Simulated assay, not measured.
Amino acid sequence: MSTLKRRNFLRAAVLGAGVTAFGNTFTPSALANPAQNGPSPYGPLQPADANGIQLPAGFTSRIVARSRQKVAGYTWHDAPDGGAVFADGSGWIYVSNSEITPGGGASALKFDANGTITGAYRVLADTRQNCAGGATPWQTWLSCEEIDRGYVYECDPWGTKAAIRRPAMGQFKHEAAAADPVRKAVYLTEDVSDGCFYRFLPTTWGDLSAGKLQVLRAGSATSGSFTWADVPDVDGSPTATRNQVSGAKRFNGGEGLHYANDTAWFTTKGDNRLWQLNLVNNTYELAYDDSLVNPGTPPLTGVDNVTGTASGDLFVAEDGGNMEICVITPNDVVAPFLRINGQSGSEICGPAFTPAGNRLYFSSQRGTTGSSSGGITYEVTGPFRS
């Protein structure tokens, strides 16, 4: 894709409930090539710190929670996965899913303005295989079940209101969600090898109890135009939602999803790709493909959760690979931002930035043990680009 396109479409700030888009005056240009190897804007990775994390100079890490260990009097959940940050006065809240069955759900860590943990608690309980999800502009967390005919649950990051199941958003193997306040839509990925990409159009924006589920239709090429079609039977029985609409485009294992400035970005793990949907002119293209990196070895493999920053950078976490979070810059350079050593049996999940953009939260789902009981949740602080 062109540098101009990246600069105009990928500028967002984490304000309150996840990512909020700035205005956009871009006129769509011709499609171009996916991101390529290059030097990181943050410089090379330094030797591993005491937590086993390699970071650029000027950045530090700390462990904020461990599975089955107490944090602020609360026992942190197993297999931490997708997450998001919500503003809370001068502080913030990090919400994290638990990708286990049974018992999944989601928990939260509450921080004051100095980054001190002041509370931890459950926001969703007794669900199944809660993988990724997404934040809404009205400050709720959408937690997605990654099982056949799974549900989306809408959760209160403060833990004071009961979570609500949202069946109108479809029953399928949900992965991630991202809200688009311009088109009043919530986009959804599906984690199966012949999965689809969906959008949910609430009858009333801000209320997910009713609405229309649609699936993206397009050709088999890696770029082109797309349309939307209604899914007739959103409960996915007896026919799966992905098989109800002729011409629905297939994606190989939909994973992380990020919305910013009239664009949806999502990853597919089966082919190690990052896709871009231009929601102004209804076109799609590849933003990254590890098989197209030249020269050198692809820095990003095992693509999974994705988030963005105000600078226009994308941060993509690896499921496996060499346990990195890689940055993709507005000028189409992809490079490692951090690497976790000694945890090859794990995956990196739930990257999310604070409202100020100077702290990044994420988890190693299985930590050093390779087991769901060994999850570790981290914070990285430093001079992120703004």
Results as ranks from 00 to 15, higher is better:
134 G>H: 07
125 A>E: 15
165 R>K: 13
128 R>F: 06
93 I>N: 14
165 R>C: 06
162 A>P: 06
149 R>I: 08
175 E>Y: 06
133 G>L: 02
129 Q>G: 04
177 A>H: 04
117 I>W: 09
160 T>P: 00
114 N>L: 07
178 A>S: 09
116 T>Q: 14
146 E>G: 01
169 M>S: 05
93 I>D: 14
160 T>E: 11
142 L>K: 08
107 S>W: 13
129 Q>A: 12
99 E>V: 04
120 A>F: 02
156 D>G: 03
90 S>T: 15
93 I>P: 01
169 M>Y: 05
111 F>T: 07
108 A>F: 14
162 A>L: 03
157 P>I: 03
115 G>S: 03
155 C>R: 10
172 F>W: 06
142 L>W: 09
122 R>M: 11
130 N>W: 00
141 W>C: 01
145 E>I: 02
154 E>M: 08
110 K>Q: 15
155 C>G: 05
173 K>A: 08
112 D>Y: 11
163 A>T: 00
150 G>Q: 12
112 D>G: 01
88 D>R: 12
142 L>S: 04
169 M>A: 12
97 N>T: 07
155 C>A: 12
139 Q>Y: 12
119 G>I: 00
172 F>G: 06
150 G>H: 08
162 A>D: 06
114 N>Q: 14
119 G>P: 03
102 P>A: 15
112 D>K: 13
158 W>L: 14
107 S>I: 03
163 A>P: 02
172 F>I: 01
140 T>L: 02
131 C>Q: 04
136 T>D: 09
120 A>T: 02
163 A>K: 01
107 S>N: 10
147 I>E: 06
122 R>Y: 05
96 S>D: 08
136 T>Y: 12
170 G>T: 02
106 A>P: 12
174 H>C: 11
128 R>C: 07
114 N>G: 13
163 A>I: 01
108 A>S: 09
162 A>M: 03
129 Q>D: 09
122 R>W: 05
168 A>R: 03
160 T>V: 10
171 Q>V: 00
158 W>R: 14
103 G>S: 09
91 G>I: 08
88 D>T: 05
154 E>Y: 02
139 Q>N: 15
